[in-house]
Design a protein around this nucleic acid. Structure first.
Lengths: 209, 209, 209, 209
DNA sequence: AATGAATGAGATTTCATTCAT
DNA sequence: AATGAATGAAATCTCATTCAT
């Protein structure tokens, strides 16, 4: 009956949408997907509950949007690398792996400051998307490498899938980056395994963790 | 203040506890952890709601119990293998990997009949426990292999961690086993990667998927 | 995930809040705090369970709100009396005591129609709040009376505290007012004790029970 | 089916009963009546859940038993005082008040070490019983005092009721005794009020707080 | 006299979602 | 484009009490 809207701020829809996505991403990472309520998100942005549903049909949908955004950015980076004519297949794989690890380690700061207890739902979704989108791209690079005699791999798609699975492990365990000694061993091990798995004689991968 | 009981069946506590764990495990796999209510579990077993809480202080605690049980069984298998004097390190690793894959594929049947959308929370918990418990055991075997000149690995613990991470992938994706062609390629790829990652000249791993 | 609403009535939040407080207060008095379920309250008001929690974070919080409301009203009455320039200290104390007794006796009707067994939790909370808020006000009046030579009291705060403690007794025992003979004796006794306790030569208190 | 009783210890019923009462009293005071579960009590004593119900028909009943025990002891003390031929009425009242305050202050130690948040239900019950049992005894003493010209009171029963109500206040607020300064003022105030309320010319009460 | 597994009603609370304005 | 009060299903958990042994 009384309907006093508290100073209604209208914004460019795309901007509002981004605000919501950004707030949600931050909260999901800090507290986890399940532990974050829609009401937390709107409060953060300073809009009404209904506004959320004006932009997203459901809470799950904004998670998809977040992941879509992140994965699109990653895929973009990766695609640029695969299409770079100045890089040979090995250098491409090297660069791609560095990109992926980069995301993971950047996650660390925000991730472990609260609830390291994790975020199973978000992780799972990210993993799925990441693998779905990157496997074809990387498999193509590996195939090139095989054709050029640089790699020795029978099933590029499956090989890449395994390697990515290992890498996803970093996503789940950003705490690894907190311990420099451990971090260093992991990097060196990954460099070796990568080279060996791709069947290179001289595995000169250089990772930047 | 209470009404009247409806044919009260008393059992050996250990048996009751098992019934509850078994029912919960089945339901968690079919519908997922979140989607399963405690009321579903007790209905399945045919006891009162309170009985559940007589045995477990919370829903999360029964999940821990399930995982504990499964992981203890797996660790047991693995330990038997590691202690088998008739097996050389390579054979041990081979057998262990087969054990792990075995669990995963057995999971398939029950897992994908509903909600392939899965069970992030349970997976995450399993992965963590599995890696925590198996890494030391396997690292020991790898170290032996290195000492015997069979393997060539700098950081056994980290190498094993990566390999297990790949394997965990099977846990998360039991649907892989549904497609025989894919299944075969995966197996063959894993055999190769495993051998190469451990630095064997002759990687003669034989996996049974 | 939700079903469908059944004629949604929107009201001014302040009004809704009051409806809830009023219903809760009535029920708490009739059945007691513990014996009243949140579901009883919302049913009474005709809103959904969730609506309650939209206004109050917990059942305990609405009890606080009720007491806060009642005590604020009482304090208000008392403050008006203490600030009345036409009354001398004795008249002020007299009026205040009448106010307090007034609340108690009004409580009788609603209180004893069910469960005279009472409402310990609510009583305790009320007592605490009542004493906390009224002691300073009344002590001030007593101090004035002492200064004016009207009262003879060494420790006004403590004296007032004891007198209020006696009065609180009425809160706990509204059944006293049911028996006129008893009621009369109590009144007359209180009038005497009050005058004597404050050290008045001529204790002319007149209470209206 | 399996029924392994864990070393069944049989005791004299009266002793068992006392153990239960003592454990319950301690727990009720430490945590409050509501916050103490029957399972806490039996655990404390080291008997089975069912044993509790062998001795007491309900949780409320053991509370009654506790209060009964405490009040009987108090009544006993008080009765001894009232029947003491060496004491005059004023000395009797003085001694009785000291008894009551003694219980309250002894309560302090156990009471405020945890949850000062109090114990409304228990307090209420105690208050009721205490007043019911002591009013007649004390009213008799006051009447004697009046007959002997020592006191000047119109309605002994009601006067005593008021005084007891004040005293009960100590039961509810054992924290008073924690602050010596406050404690002293309260005592002195009570001594004065007591004398005045009973209409003594020379109110020489001496309380021991 | 004692056990302890089993009961089950019921209470509080959460929160994604809706919808009238 | 935005609001925010209202929804209500459902979930977890508590605990006094019972009863077969």
């Amino acid at each position: 009956m009384k309907r006093m809207a508290r100073e209604r701020v209208t914004k460019d829809p795309e901007e509002r949408r981004q605000e919501l996505i950004d707030a949600a991403e931050r909260l999901f990472m800090e507290r986890g997907y399940e532990a974050t309520a829609v009401s937390d998100i709107v409060q953060e942005v300073g809009v009404a509950q209904g506004t959320f549903y004006y932009y997203f049909p459901s809470k799950e949908e904004i998670l998809e949007a977040i992941i879509e955004k992140d994965m699109a950015a990653l895929e973009d980076d990766v695609r640029k690398i695969t299409e770079d004519p100045n890089l040979d297949p090995a250098a491409k794989i090297n660069a791609i792996v560095n990109s992926i690890i980069g995301i993971s380690s950047s996650r660390k700061e925000i991730m472990d400051y609260l609830h390291k207890e994790s975020n199973a739902v978000m992780h799972e979704k990210m993993e799925r998307h990441l693998i779905e989108r990157l496997v074809p791209l990387m498999a193509e690079v590996v195939s090139q490498g095989v054709a050029e005699g640089r790699f020795d791999v029978q099933h590029p798609t499956e090989a890449v899938e395994f390697l990515l699975a290992s890498m996803v492990y970093f996503f789940h365990h950003p705490e690894i980056f907190a311990d420099p000694a451990r971090s260093k061993k992991m990097r060196s091990t990954l460099e070796t395994i990568l080279g060996r798995a791709l069947g290179m004689k001289d595995y000169g991968f250089v990772l930047v963790v």
